[in-house]
């Protein structure tokens, strides 16, 4: 049982970090569907930097690249006011593709000094708490929520809607970058094309499941991590096909969603803000 809980936390951590990142910008009204690609590129950046200069640089580089990609999405979602859903999907493809092309030379090299998972898992928990406090207790949090709910009103009160959104994308991107760094520096200390294996999509789903609440995202991520581990822990010990176990995490997510009812999304989610409108 202890192992199961430990795995829940350690495998839940990258999902948690990525979903916190997506959650942050979504509270400000910007949907981020590019998580998978952002994670892949920052995992590569983190790995390359860690190999050249050490793990601390690796983490910094992963976070930095994540932030830049967040701002890149911002160019489309905020500056150009383009369709956020499609911009995100395109970014996901671009990130996966670019990381695959650029990362060729790093494939097959183990990282000599991996980071301890526990430290990053702790950091993720602190970040979740911090994000909760940021949203509920700070002025920026208030601005962010108002921009996500009613950008027009926020604008009338003198809040810079675009500025708030850029900052949210950069900070959120940093967290997604940290998730990527966790994968390539700690979880599986090496780089291979496609190593994010769909976790970015799970993270996006988790934002909705958590009802856009950081602390509920913690529970959700650990819950998913636990189920993911249990599919292998229980496989073969009960007379149920292994495929049924593999499908279990996703089935339970649907059930939880149906039972927990309507989580309310930020009202202006996915809508570009135009002052003149």
């Amino acid at each position: 049982m202890e192992e199961a809980l430990l795995r829940a936390v350690l495998f839940g951590t990258p999902i948690l970090l990525a979903s916190l990142g997506a959650l942050l910008s979504e509270r400000g009204g910007v949907v981020n569907l590019g998580v998978e690609g952002m994670m892949a590129l920052s995992a590569l950046a983190a790995f390359a930097a860690a190999l050249e200069a050490g793990p601390v640089w690796g983490v910094l580089c992963g976070v930095g690249v994540g932030s830049l990609l967040g701002l890149f999405l911002g160019v489309f979602a905020v500056f150009l006011r383009a369709n956020q859903f499609v911009a995100g999907l395109a970014l996901a493809a671009l990130g996966l593709g670019a990381s695959g092309l650029l990362g060729k030379r790093y494939e097959g090299t183990p990282l000599p000094d991996p980071l301890p998972e526990g430290v990053l898992a702790g950091l993720a928990l602190i970040l979740a708490l911090g994000l909760h406090l940021l949203l509920s207790r700070t002025r920026y949090g208030l601005y962010l929520r108002s921009v996500g709910e009613n950008p027009k009103a926020a604008d009338l009160f003198g809040v810079s809607v675009d500025g708030v959104r850029y900052l949210a994308l950069a900070l959120g991107g940093g967290m997604i970058g940290l998730a990527g760094a966790y994968l390539s520096l700690a979880y599986r200390p090496s780089w291979t094309d496609g190593m994010t294996s769909g976790l970015g999509w799970v993270a996006i789903a988790l934002v909705i499941l958590a009802g856009w609440q950081p602390l509920r995202a913690v529970l959700g991520a650990y819950f998913f991590g636990l189920l993911f581990f249990l599919q292998f822990r229980l496989q073969g010990s009960v007379p149920i096909p292994s495929e049924a176990f593999a499908a279990m995490p996703y089935l339970l997510v649907i059930l939880v969603l149906a039972l927990s009812g309507r989580a309310r999304a930020p009202r202006a989610l996915g809508q570009p803000f135009d002052r003149g409108r």
């Binding site: 795995r7 979880y187 599986r188 294996s197 292998f232």
Partner: peptide, 10 residues
Amino acid sequence: PAKAREATEA
């Protein structure tokens, strides 16, 4: 990698 990792952990 994620499945291989968790299967090994199990």
